[in-house]
Amino acid sequence: MTPEVGSFVVDTRRGAIGEVMGHEGPRLQLRPASGGREWEAEPDDVRPATEAEKLTAKVRAANSGSRWGK
């Protein structure tokens, strides 16, 4: 199963939550919820993020923006 663009997944290799930004061949392009540099992941190395993981990522993104006056 290939995750949809806009969905959140956990990259089990990195231990990081990312938003699916696109697909390049078999690889996924992921970006941290708080923004930043995208990275690539193999589809076999990701799993859907749980609701708790998605919430945690979104809260971290909101908190990082508030610290820097965004």
Results as ranks from 00 to 15, higher is better:
residue 48 P to R: 13
residue 58 K to N: 08
residue 39 W to C: 03
residue 58 K to Y: 09
residue 47 R to N: 04
residue 52 A to K: 10
residue 39 W to Q: 02
residue 12 T to Q: 14
residue 8 F to E: 01
residue 37 R to G: 14
residue 21 M to H: 03
residue 26 P to Y: 05
residue 44 D to H: 13
residue 51 E to L: 15
residue 30 L to E: 06
residue 34 S to M: 12
residue 9 V to D: 05
residue 56 T to A: 14
residue 7 S to W: 09
residue 50 T to Y: 02
residue 52 A to R: 11
residue 13 R to K: 10
residue 32 P to L: 08
residue 37 R to Y: 10
residue 13 R to Y: 03
residue 47 R to L: 06
residue 23 H to P: 00
residue 21 M to T: 05
residue 21 M to W: 06
residue 56 T to P: 02
residue 17 I to D: 02
residue 15 G to V: 09
residue 26 P to H: 11
residue 28 L to M: 06
residue 29 Q to T: 09
residue 45 D to H: 14
residue 22 G to N: 05
residue 38 E to A: 07
residue 40 E to D: 08
residue 36 G to P: 07
residue 48 P to M: 14
residue 31 R to H: 04
residue 27 R to L: 02
residue 19 E to A: 12
residue 20 V to R: 08
residue 38 E to V: 04
residue 45 D to V: 09
residue 53 E to S: 11
residue 12 T to G: 00
residue 19 E to R: 15
residue 57 A to M: 10
residue 58 K to E: 14
residue 25 G to Y: 05
residue 22 G to H: 08
residue 40 E to I: 04
residue 57 A to C: 11
residue 26 P to D: 15
residue 39 W to P: 02
residue 40 E to T: 12
residue 37 R to E: 15
residue 34 S to A: 15
residue 56 T to D: 09
residue 44 D to V: 11
residue 54 K to I: 06
residue 13 R to L: 15
residue 8 F to D: 01
residue 49 A to R: 04
residue 50 T to E: 04
residue 37 R to T: 15
residue 36 G to S: 04
residue 15 G to Q: 02
residue 52 A to Y: 07
residue 35 G to C: 12
residue 58 K to V: 14
residue 41 A to K: 09
residue 41 A to G: 08
residue 12 T to V: 14
residue 24 E to P: 00
residue 7 S to R: 10
residue 30 L to S: 08
residue 28 L to N: 02
residue 57 A to Q: 02
residue 33 A to N: 01
residue 43 P to L: 15
residue 38 E to T: 11
residue 37 R to N: 10
residue 49 A to T: 01
residue 11 D to P: 14
residue 25 G to P: 06
residue 44 D to K: 13
residue 42 E to T: 05
residue 27 R to W: 03
residue 44 D to E: 14
residue 51 E to D: 15
residue 38 E to L: 05
residue 13 R to T: 11
residue 52 A to P: 02
residue 50 T to A: 10
residue 39 W to S: 01
residue 15 G to S: 03
residue 31 R to N: 04
residue 28 L to I: 06
residue 27 R to D: 00
residue 7 S to L: 10
residue 15 G to Y: 00
residue 9 V to A: 00
residue 42 E to R: 13
residue 22 G to V: 05
residue 23 H to Q: 14
residue 54 K to H: 00
residue 29 Q to L: 14
residue 7 S to H: 09
residue 13 R to F: 05
residue 47 R to W: 05
residue 27 R to S: 00
residue 28 L to S: 01
residue 37 R to I: 13
residue 34 S to L: 13
residue 10 V to T: 07
residue 7 S to A: 15
residue 57 A to D: 02
residue 48 P to C: 09
residue 38 E to I: 05
residue 31 R to V: 13
residue 45 D to R: 10
residue 17 I to L: 02
residue 37 R to P: 11
residue 56 T to Y: 05
residue 28 L to P: 02
residue 46 V to L: 03
